[in-house]
């Protein structure tokens, strides 16, 4: 993988290489070089398969991280490309023309994280959330517990005890 990285690095300005296994590595890059690097990997290096496209919300840094995982089946190796996007008004170039399946991933990311991929087929159609009105639920500032409490009723008769208060009542009821 180091050889491949060195070769790529002569052609494109890349960020760091993270090797996870001998046949799995991740390369960071900036958004503008994603398409040429993907094309090169697909057409010149045998990474013909887009395994997945996913995102991580780095809330504190105000950024989304996108990970594109590609597979070179003939040689049994995978490579991931990672890039950061500003979280505000997050938008990324679509790659559905390189891999048609990307459109599905992009539609999912649009719905779950609110990341736009202009031009991607059916990008604004509902994916699995029907009638969703809240902020995208995979954003880390989405309060899952609050949503669950507001939308799903608890069965009657539920009761809970706070551990510290319960211990106080049991072990030192008179405050001593």
């Amino acid at each position: 993988m180091r050889e491949l990285y060195a070769k790529l690095n002569r052609l494109f300005p890349l960020g760091e290489l993270t090797e996870r296994r001998s046949n799995l590595a991740f390369i960071t890059l900036t958004a503008e070089y994603l398409r040429p690097v993907l094309l090169h990997l697909r057409d010149r290096e045998g990474f013909s398969h887009l395994v997945l496209l996913t995102a991580v919300d780095w809330l504190e840094e105000g950024q989304f991280q996108l990970s594109y995982l590609l597979s070179d089946r003939a040689n049994g190796r995978d490579i991931g490309l990672r890039l950061m996007l500003p979280r505000d008004g997050a938008s990324m170039e679509s790659i559905h023309d390189l891999w048609p399946t990307a459109a599905t991933y992009q539609r999912e990311l649009r719905e779950m994280f609110g990341i736009d991929f202009p031009g991607s087929p059916r990008i604004n159609e509902e994916f699995i959330l029907e009638g969703w009105t809240d902020i995208p639920p995979y954003r880390r500032d989405f309060d899952t517990l609050k949503f669950a409490q507001e939308n799903f009723v608890a069965r009657p008769g539920r009761e809970t005890w706070d551990p510290a208060r319960h211990m106080k009542d049991q072990l030192y009821p008179d405050g001593a």
């Binding site: 899952t144 517990l145 669950a148 799903f152 608890a154 009761e159 809970t160 706070d162 551990p163 319960h166």
Partner: peptide, 8 residues
């Protein structure tokens, strides 16, 4: 995250 657990 589902409010499914009570301590009893």
């Amino acid at each position: 995250q589902n409010g499914a657990i009570d301590m009893v």
